[in-house]
Design a protein around this nucleic acid. Structure first.
Lengths: 132, 132
DNA sequence: GCACATAGTATCAAAAAGGGTACTGCAATG
DNA sequence: CATTGCAGTACCCTTTTTGATACTATGTGC
């Protein structure tokens, strides 16, 4: 994220982890990056890839990604505007992360946004807060 | 994981990425998970690991992680309360992601939360928006 | 003339997310 | 007796993020 919303780094070992996700959180960023892994895309192409993203949001996220140096934006001075977005080398270096994320999601999330149910061992009351 | 099983589903491929990220975003979640990778911790231990986290926030994030099945919470009915947090199997399966994140952060972030500067080739005006 | 497509902006609003501080109950410690 | 530590809660507030819509400019196609 462009504005270090994620904490001030006093640098416990988790810092770099946090910093890294800080750059790819945001509702659409990771997805945008993921799509860009496959190649350069134009604004409306991304829009069509990611249903439900409004132009405002897309611009927003793309700008932040650009500001963070993960994405490159190339404008063609044509009459029907043409703007291409692609990963920068830095963005491309994010590939392992994105793949790890996707791999995890594919195997642990039921494609509906929630983690798969882990069958509880033999709990009578799985939802209890275990209050003493 | 290249193809596992095709989710015969119209969700764009980025979905699982987004879902995965959705579970570990939040200002402190990834750091908490990261610390828990090393082993079980008690509430105040985590607090001490992550400077600047307020109890409210910590509870908050831990509860969300618990709700998402990534973290397990174990309460001991002792008099000075004792609560242990540890990764669930699902949370542990996040390890590759967390490590990828950390690896990326370590090599691409200057420990101050910003991506390392990529030395610009020979640009006189690095900040231009390239407006058509 | 009119609509369409491109790549966005502008303007408004609502909802999350994050944050601070004070406070709880109880036992052991000093 | 007062204090400390544990594991949080309660309350209230600010900031950030997300969102829908409508609107811009321009050239092409009908």
């Amino acid at each position: 994220m462009a504005k270090a919303r994620h904490s001030r780094f006093d640098c416990s070992p988790g810092c770099s982890v946090e910093a890294a996700i800080g750059l790819i959180d945001g509702k659409w960023k990771s997805v945008i990056l993921f799509h860009l892994l496959s190649g350069t895309l134009r604004f409306n192409e991304i829009r069509r890839h990611i249903v439900n993203v409004t132009p405002r949001m897309l611009t927003n996220q793309l700008r932040e990604l650009e500001d963070d140096g993960l994405v490159e934006r190339k404008v063609y001075a044509q009459v029907p505007p043409k703007v291409e977005y692609s990963l920068s080398p830095l963005g491309r270096s994010m590939q392992p992360v994105l793949h790890a994320l996707k791999a995890w999601g594919d195997s642990n999330i039921g494609l509906y946004g929630k983690p798969k149910e882990v069958p509880p061992p033999q709990q009578a009351d799985p939802g209890e807060r275990t209050g003493a």
